[in-house]
C-alpha cells in the first residue's frame, strides 16, 4: 500500500492568483512557439524506402506488364484480397494476367505479395491515400494498379538490398 501525502500548499499557492498569473504567462509564451500542425493535402509526410503503402504492379520499360500470373501472391495473400485470371501471350513470358484485381478494402498492406513474387512484378508503393464513394470503386483492377518501374524505384532498391541477406556466396554464382 502506498500512502500519498497531499502536498501542503504555500500561502501564495493557496491565494491562486500568483499561480494563475504563472499559468497565463506560460500560455502566452506558447502562442509564439513553433507550430506542429501539418497542412495535410498541401504538406504531406515524406515517405521513405521502408514505407509499405498499397501494392502496385510493375510495368516494364516497353509498356508490358511484368506479371506472369503465377498466382503465388494470390496464394500468399492472408486477406484474400488478390484475384488473378491468367491468359496466354505471344511475349517471351508466355503468360500474363487477363484480370488482376486487388480489393483495397481487404488489403492489409502486409507486403506478402511483394515477397512471394518470383518475377519482381508487384511492389508496395508509397501511395497511402484510399478513399472513394463506393466499395466497387475500391476494387482496383489491372489498369489502376499499373505503375512504371521508375515510380517504384525507391522500394525496389530497398527490397533488393534486403534480399542480399538471404543470398549465400554459392547462390550468386
Amino acid at each position: 500500500m502506498v500512502i500519498v501525502k497531499r502536498k501542503t500548499l504555500s500561502f501564495s499557492e493557496r491565494l491562486y492568483l500568483p499561480e494563475i498569473v504563472r499559468g497565463l504567462s506560460i500560455t502566452f509564451r506558447k502562442m509564439f512557439a513553433k507550430r506542429v500542425t501539418r497542412q495535410y493535402p498541401e504538406e504531406r509526410l515524406e515517405t521513405t524506402e521502408v514505407t509499405r503503402g498499397q501494392p502496385r504492379l510493375v510495368v516494364n520499360e516497353d509498356d508490358s506488364i511484368a506479371c506472369v500470373s503465377c498466382g503465388l501472391c494470390e496464394a500468399a495473400c492472408p486477406a484474400y484480397a488478390i484475384t488473378i485470371d491468367g491468359q496466354e501471350t505471344d511475349r517471351f513470358i508466355e503468360r500474363e494476367p487477363e484480370r488482376f484485381d486487388i480489393d483495397m478494402l481487404r488489403c492489409i498492406l502486409c507486403g506478402f505479395c511483394e515477397e512471394a513474387c518470383p518475377k519482381d512484378a508487384i511492389y508496395m508503393s508509397d501511395e497511402l491515400e484510399l478513399a472513394d464513394y463506393s466499395r466497387a470503386a475500391l476494387i482496383y483492377d489491372i489498369e489502376k494498379l499499373k505503375r512504371p518501374k521508375s515510380a517504384l524505384e525507391q522500394r525496389i532498391g530497398y527490397v533488393n538490398k534486403i534480399n542480399q541477406r538471404w543470398q549465400t556466396p554459392s547462390s550468386t554464382s
Binding site: T27, K30, R35, T37
Partner: peptide
Amino acid sequence: KFSAWMQYRI
C-alpha cells in the same frame, strides 16, 4: 484561433 496558437496549432 487563440486556443490553437496556445496549443501549437494553426
